[in-house]
Structure formats: structure tokens, C-alpha cells
Amino acid sequence: MQTTYRVAAVQAEPVWLDADATTEKTIGLIEDAAAQDVALVAFPETWIPGYPLFLWLGAVAVQTPYIARYHANSPTTDGKHLTAIRRAARRTGVTVALSYSEKDHGSLYMSQTLIAADGGVHMHRRKLKPTHVERSLFGESDGSSLKVVDTPLGRLGALNCWEHLQPLSKYAMYAQYEQVHVAAWPAFGLYKGIAYALGAEANMAVTQTYALEGGCFVIAPTQVLSERGIDVFAGNDDQRALLTAGAGSARIFGPDGTPLGHQLDEHAEGFVIADVDLSLIDLAKNAADPAGHYARADATQLLHDNRPKPPVVRPGEDAGPHFPGLDEPGSGIPAD
């Protein structure tokens, strides 16, 4: 296992509602990360095809054209977009933490796939409960999506956005001895100055707390919102007033909560890059390990049911999650 290596948090704008163009941009960013000796690069929440800001801007009837376009541009696990990105990971030797809107027949999920440096898949998960109006577009997952996996880069895990406000979900991750965590966030240009809880300051504080509580490195990628992006979603002055350009807030934190790397201007696209040394985790956890020596099992315990809960169970069939192209026998990616 590699114990020292370089990681990168993406701060960039997707090509809104365009899976083909955003996939092309993703591959370019992976190649740029490889050129800077990055071993692990992490992308923001629903990076493909971009966070659905339209959900927060008006009545459902007005959203219908956006919903149709969003469905049409949401990748499937076995489709051309994931295949192209997995090929890029293999070609560059970079491990990729990709967040996207996953289309599974008639449903969408806020998903994260951890793609190995050889193009294989370490992990696939879905956001347990979409937040607020997100639930009108995305489906839910179950306890099987709270998982940490062994990789050549250590024990890696991931959560999306306000999953970092769920104390029990976080504790389930800490208890799996997570070493490097991907905290994927959208752009913070929504309701800026109106709703403090949706802003960068509050949510980066939550992310920093995750690093300190979990005693792990945390990579937090975010999206950028440009004036061109606002034009995509704002159909009138009232909607435009709810969106603010910029809002990029990518961060990386060490296992004692220390900010790492150089923060970018909120309008800039690029990477926050830092070097990880997993041996520092032992020092952090020597002081406080909330799921280890600092726990009080006699007072409080967590029940984490990690069994998948499919809507249909057929006798004789595996009841586990099934993601075409990611977990089928012989489902390696096609050659370039």
C-alpha cells in the first residue's frame, strides 16, 4: 500500500446539462492531474451533468424541460461516459473519485464511483437521502452505500454534500477506519447571502470537522458557477437574483483538521493539491479516536445495517446491489 502520495480536489465548472462535453472536460482534468503527479483526483457532486440548480428556482411545472434534459444527460454505469473516464484513469494511472447523476432506467441517483488506476472499480455508491428539493428528482439508497474500501492508496470512502450533516452516517464511516475521504460538494452560488447553511463557510466547516472527527484526510471538490452557467438556469430576474457567480470553494484537510494546499479564487478553475502522508493519522487518532479508544460503547452504540434493500427480491437470486458494467463478471472496460 502506498502511504505517501499526491491528491487533488477539482474546482471547476461542468458543461451544464451536457454529459458528452463534461466527460471530455473530465478526461482533460484527469490528464492535467496526472501531469502534476497526482495519484487521486476527486470531482464535485453531480459533476456530470452538473448540479441541478433549477430544482431550487421555481415551480415544478417550470422545471419540466430541465428534467427531461437532465435525464437525457445522466450517465449509466455501463454507458459510454463512464467507459471513457475509466479508460482515461487506466491510461494515466490516476485513481478517480467521480460524482455524477446516475441514470438507472427511469430513476436517477446522486452517485459516486471510485475508479482504480487500472480502470477497474473500487467502489460504487449512491447518496442515502437527497436533500430537500433534490428528492423530487433523485432516488434514495440504503446502508450498503456507507462503505469504506481497501485500495492501493489506503482505506478510501466518499459521501455527497449534506451527508456530512448526518452524525450517524459519519460515525458509520469513521468506524470503518477510513484514511482518505472524498467530500463531494456542488457550487455554493445558490441563495448566497440568503441561506447561510447553503454557503461555503458553513459547509467547509462541516468538512473540516469530518477530518478532525474521523482522523482522516478529506478531499473536498466543488463546482464553479459562471455568468454563462447562470444564464442556463435563470429564466427571469427573480431567478437570477438567487444565483451568484463564482462560489468555488475546493479544500483539502489533514487528519488534525489542518487546511492543506493553496486555496483558489472562487472564480478560478483548477486543483487544490496536497501531499498525503497516512502515518499522520496515527498521531491524530492517538489524541481522539471516536470509534476506537475514545468511544463509550457502554453509553452509546450505532446500529449500521449495511445489507442492501432492493425493491424486489427473487428467491435464489443475489439480493445485493447490481450496477451493470461495474460489478458483472467479466465487465472489464473495453480496450482503447
Rank of each mutant, 00 (worst) to 15 (best):
A234W: 04
L260R: 03
A158N: 01
W56A: 14
A172D: 05
Y294P: 00
M204Q: 12
K192G: 08
P310M: 11
V312I: 15
A241C: 04
A295I: 01
S111G: 05
Q63R: 05
L146A: 08
P255W: 12
G199D: 14
T23S: 13
L243R: 11
L146Q: 08
A284K: 02
S249E: 13
T83Q: 12
E102Y: 12
I67N: 00
G292H: 10
A268Y: 03
L82P: 08
A205V: 02
R126M: 03
L82M: 15
E317W: 08
A88Y: 11
W56R: 07
T209P: 00
Y177R: 15
F233R: 11
D336N: 11
A241V: 01
A205C: 05
K192Y: 09
R307Q: 13
D282N: 09
L242S: 04
Y171V: 05
T300Q: 13
F271P: 04
I281H: 00
N73W: 11
T244W: 10
V218T: 15
L137I: 01
A220L: 07
T76D: 07
H122D: 03
A175S: 14
E227R: 12
H293M: 03
G229T: 10
R240T: 08
G320W: 13
K80W: 09
P324D: 02
P324T: 04
G119V: 10
K129T: 13
D104Q: 14
A297Y: 08
V94H: 10
A84P: 07
M110R: 14
G254K: 04
L153F: 05
A97V: 07
N203G: 05
V41H: 09
Y294D: 12
V60H: 10
M204T: 15
G261Y: 09
H304C: 09
N236I: 14
V38A: 07
L114G: 03
S145Q: 10
D231M: 04
S145I: 03
A247S: 15
R90V: 04
G28H: 02
